[in-house]
Design a protein around this nucleic acid. Structure first.
Lengths: 145, 145
DNA sequence: TATCTTCAGTTTAATACTAAACTGATAAAA
DNA sequence: TTTTATCAGTTTAGTATTAAACTGAAGATA
């Protein structure tokens, strides 16, 4: 049953590719805008994402952080080293695990940036109605189910 | 009129953030899978995207290529240098513009990889029906309209 | 006790990507 | 004709990111 594609299959493939193209286009633009925006606080999107995750957990290990943010643990090591050096987070070793928490400075920074950046991020979806946002989320959720 | 957010505003912001989270999650996973897949041909997603764009145009300038792929021209210079070195593309200077075309080897490679990679990419949307794919594309289009 | 396994985190080498400064050629204006 | 503006492409310095190899500590097992 590995014959030539049917018309329907070709059509489906084309629709997927179109969707991917749109999605990737939007993602790139959005990331770039956010990075520009976060420059005011000398911060990158990757760092912001870490701050948010750490800020919303009492204590979280590096590995769990990497899993939640969908990056490799190697990437996490490097990000956290930089952020530790900047004085935003601290690492506490316990057994063989390193737990991450915000420093006071990190907490302060996050409190300042979070609402502004969230609004900025949200504005990128401004053309959609509430219903459409729900639809979009539902579709993306279904893709990965 | 800069008072505290209304309930509706908060709700809208939350929905946007959820959508962004889903989208970004999917994007990352998809890119990573594709990179793994393209490794068979010693190729990255960025290079594949360039090959496709160059392959579907008779002649395209570096700047136009960068615009179409939504990357900076600096990035394009580097990508193309590598790809030229690999013998996939060639640059022809005309006036002050450099036009890019596929070499025979590049064309051959693209012909081999394109259908497989497109199918691989499309499979990532496999959980969606035709209608849902259309919806997704329409929503993403609207966001950027 | 000695050795194996597992797993968190680190390191390394590579690509990707950006912003910003720079180069150099063309075209326009003085 | 000389100067200026514009614009394609390059370079540079920095962050992000990955895969894969490595380190080192716990715990299991022989």
């Amino acid at each position: 049953m590995n014959g030539p594609d049917t018309f329907r299959q070709k059509r489906e493939r084309m629709l997927s590719i179109l969707a991917w193209f749109r999605l990737s286009r939007f993602y790139h633009q959005s990331i770039r805008r956010s990075n520009q925006h976060l420059k005011k606080w000398n911060m990158t999107v990757a760092q912001f994402d870490v701050l948010v995750q750490v800020g919303s957990n009492v204590r979280i290990s590096q590995q769990d952080l990497a899993d939640q943010l969908l990056v490799t643990k190697g990437n996490m090591t490097q990000l956290l080293s930089k952020m530790e050096q900047l004085g935003w987070i601290q690492r506490e070793r316990e057994w063989k695990i390193k737990y991450i928490t915000l420093t006071d400075a990190g907490r302060e920074l996050l409190d300042e940036v979070l609402p502004v950046q969230e609004q900025f991020q949200a504005d990128q979806f401004g053309k959609l109605t509430i219903e459409e946002k729900k639809q979009l989320t539902a579709l993306l959720k279904k893709i990965q189910s």
